[in-house]
């Protein structure tokens, strides 16, 4: 019984998290002494499947069907159920993407099991597999022991496994035929689109000051604006600030906003829910200012000040504006 990774593509383009999942399947397969296999589903995915044939895998499955041209939870769930019945894997891995979140739990339920979502690591204890996932927005971890024959389903958090560690090699590609009827697909998706003109491109900013719930009131944003100005930085925010309409959505950093990697990222009053961290943890230098010493943001911060941002931020602005503290090269 194998470890099977279900990879994600849209209109012939890979979701890059797919290769993290492929690498995880190789790694888990090797450690558990099980075959690593991968599958890709869609319409006309032969080229993508052939690309997967260039990796060290026991087998690649190509699940091709006219009705999988557009992603629908009904179509994917029905098709993958048939794939899983045919392959009979012990563990099925998915990237923890919005698409997986949309069909994964449905597929798992149809298989009579529950998906272990958003896994960040694994461990082998005496040959038994333990998966680790986070509770309370990353403040607490939980170990999960798999029991029974499976199939077990798990989705992997972005960045938990390294795509670059995926081993090249050669794998046979097998086409799997699935039965789908148009009447079984109840949702009618329209073509994905982007809102007209994203105004702010945070990805090119050298320095970013990002603000979170700790700011408490919209009126207090002036405080962090001053800090951003003093640092020559772009102002950004975690999702709740944009949800409240305090800053426009295009200033949001995180899984539902922009992914940034500036030279300097200053997180002010951001606790560091994983949805935010995935969008900024690649920054070169990370500063966190938060009154909670246990805030997960300190997990990724290089420098931290545990304290009241309403005192720390003005002090920081003052310090930056002292004569002789002029910035080298404003962005």
């Amino acid at each position: 019984m194998s470890v099977l990774a279900i990879l994600e593509q849209r209109e012939g383009q890979w979701n890059q998290a797919s290769f993290e999942t492929l690498a995880a399947a190789q790694q888990l397969g090797a450690e558990l002494g099980r075959a690593a296999r991968v599958a890709v589903a869609g319409r006309g995915v032969g080229t993508l499947a052939a690309e997967l044939g260039g990796y060290s895998l026991e087998r690649v499955y190509s699940v091709d069907h006219e009705l999988l041209a557009e992603y629908t939870p009904d179509g994917y769930s029905l098709a993958l159920r048939q794939l899983i019945a045919a392959v009979d894997p012990w563990l099925v891995l998915f990237p923890h993407t919005y698409q997986t979140r949309d069909f994964g739990p449905k597929l798992a339920t149809a298989l009579g099991t529950a998906m272990i979502s958003d896994v960040i690591a694994h461990r082998l204890d005496g040959g038994e597999l333990t998966l680790v996932r986070q509770l309370f927005q990353g403040k607490i971890n939980a170990d999960i022991r798999l029991s029974g024959n499976g199939p077990h389903l798990a989705s992997l958090q972005a960045g938990a496994y390294r795509a670059t560690s995926a081993r090249r090699g050669q794998a046979p590609v097998e086409t799997v035929t699935v039965e789908l009827g148009a009447g079984q697909i109840r949702t009618r998706p329209q073509k994905p689109f982007r809102e007209s003109g994203r105004v702010v491109d945070l990805t090119s900013a050298e320095r970013i000051v990002a603000v979170g719930r700790g700011i408490k009131e919209a009126e207090n944003l002036a405080l962090v604006r001053k800090l951003a100005e003093a640092l020559g930085a772009e102002l950004a925010a975690s999702r709740p600030i944009c949800d409240n309409g305090w800053l426009p959505m295009d200033r949001q950093v995180g899984s539902s906003g922009q992914t940034v990697a500036p030279k300097l990222y200053v997180a002010v009053g951001i606790s560091g829910a994983i949805q935010h961290l995935v969008g900024m943890k690649g920054s070169k230098t990370i500063v966190a200012i938060n009154r909670d010493p246990e805030a997960p943001v300190f997990e990724v911060a290089d420098y931290g000040i545990v304290g009241d941002l309403f005192q720390v931020v003005p002090a920081l602005v003052e310090e930056l504006q002292k004569p002789g503290q002029a910035l080298s090269g404003q962005p």
Binding site: A114, N141, D143, E299
Partner: peptide
């Protein structure tokens, strides 16, 4: 059977 069990929770 649920298929899995939370065996331990802890601070990371």
């Amino acid at each position: 059977a649920p298929g899995f069990q939370v065996t331990r929770v802890y601070l990371p």
